[in-house]
Each structure stands twice: as structure tokens, then as C-alpha cells.
Simulated assay, not measured.
Amino acid sequence: MARIDFAPGGLNPPHTHPCGIEVLVVVEGTLLVGFVTSNELNNTLFTKVLYKGDVFVFPIGLIHFQLNIGNTYALSFSGLSSQNPGLITIANAVFGTKPPMSADVLTKAFQVDKKVVDYLQAQFWYDNN
């Protein structure tokens, strides 16, 4: 289990647990949650606004997020179906790799200019210690 505290506007960014299902319970506040289906299901986005006492299930391996849309702090608890569900934060995995992923790959994959890729990669710092 994990406790997740959200400041107003706080985000648990898009991520996935490749080896576990997540069940989220809202204890305080208001969260916008969502997940994206697989390519076979047209990458459909499912979202829901959750309030105190609501529960939501994120299917195994699907990209999902939680955003505090309220004006107060929010608190939730997540239970995972595995001792080692894994965690892949999407932006970190794509734009924060060490060494950096090739700009040629990223510009083609995201159909954006190299300046955009350079900007996004620069948002991640590297600890060389």
C-alpha cells in the first residue's frame, strides 16, 4: 500500500505498473483520475472525478494518473496486487533516459521539432556523482 498526499493542483503524473493492478481509495479531497486503454482498444481515455470515500481500479500495465482538482489538500491510499508491481513514469522513461534517447527517435515518434525534444530533455537533470 502507498499513501499519496496531494497539494491543491498536485499531480501523480502518467505512469504504469507493468506487474500489478492498483486500487485507489480517496480519503480526503477531490481527484480527477484516469487511464488509457491499450493500442488494440484505440488508446481510449477513461476519466472520473472521485470524492471522499470513492474507489477506483487501474488495470494492470495501463498508463494512469491522479490530479487534485480541489482547492484543498487531498489524501488517498493505493493498494497494489503485487509486492513488486513495478513503476514506469512515462515522461521520465522517454525524456529523462541516461544517456538521452536519440532526438531522431523522439522527433519521429512524437512528430515534433527537435527544439521541442531538446526542451523536454532539458527539464530532467542528471546527478553525475
Rank of each mutant, 00 (worst) to 15 (best):
M1T: 11
I4N: 11
I4C: 11
D5V: 12
D5R: 00
F6S: 09
P8W: 15
P8A: 14
G9I: 08
G10T: 05
N12W: 04
P14A: 00
H15W: 01
H15F: 00
H15D: 00
T16R: 10
P18V: 04
C19F: 04
I21H: 07
E22N: 01
V23P: 09
V23A: 01
L24V: 09
V25K: 12
V25R: 04
V26N: 05
E28F: 01
G29V: 03
V33P: 02
V33M: 03
G34N: 02
G34I: 00
S38D: 09
E40M: 07
E40C: 08
L41H: 15
L41D: 02
N42A: 08
N43F: 01
N43M: 13
L45E: 13
F46C: 02
K48G: 04
V49E: 04
L50Q: 07
L50M: 15
Y51P: 12
Y51M: 05
K52P: 13
G53C: 08
G53R: 11
D54L: 05
D54H: 07
V57K: 06
I60H: 02
G61Y: 12
L62I: 01
L62S: 03
L62N: 00
L62C: 09
I63R: 04
I63T: 11
H64N: 06
H64V: 09
I69E: 00
I69P: 04
I69G: 06
T72A: 14
T72N: 13
Y73T: 09
Y73H: 13
Y73G: 08
A74N: 07
A74F: 03
F77W: 08
F77I: 12
G79D: 09
S81M: 03
S82K: 10
S82D: 15
Q83G: 15
L87M: 14
L87S: 11
I88L: 04
I90D: 03
A93K: 05
A93E: 06
V94N: 00
F95G: 13
G96F: 00
K98E: 10
K98Y: 14
P100L: 12
S102H: 01
S102N: 03
S102P: 13
A103Q: 12
D104A: 14
T107K: 06
T107P: 12
T107L: 05
K108C: 13
A109Y: 07
Q111W: 01
V112G: 12
V112A: 07
K114L: 05
V116F: 08
V116Q: 07
V116P: 08
Y119C: 15
Y119G: 06
L120I: 14
Q121W: 02
Q121T: 10
Q123H: 06
Q123P: 09
W125S: 15
Y126M: 13
N128T: 07
N129M: 09
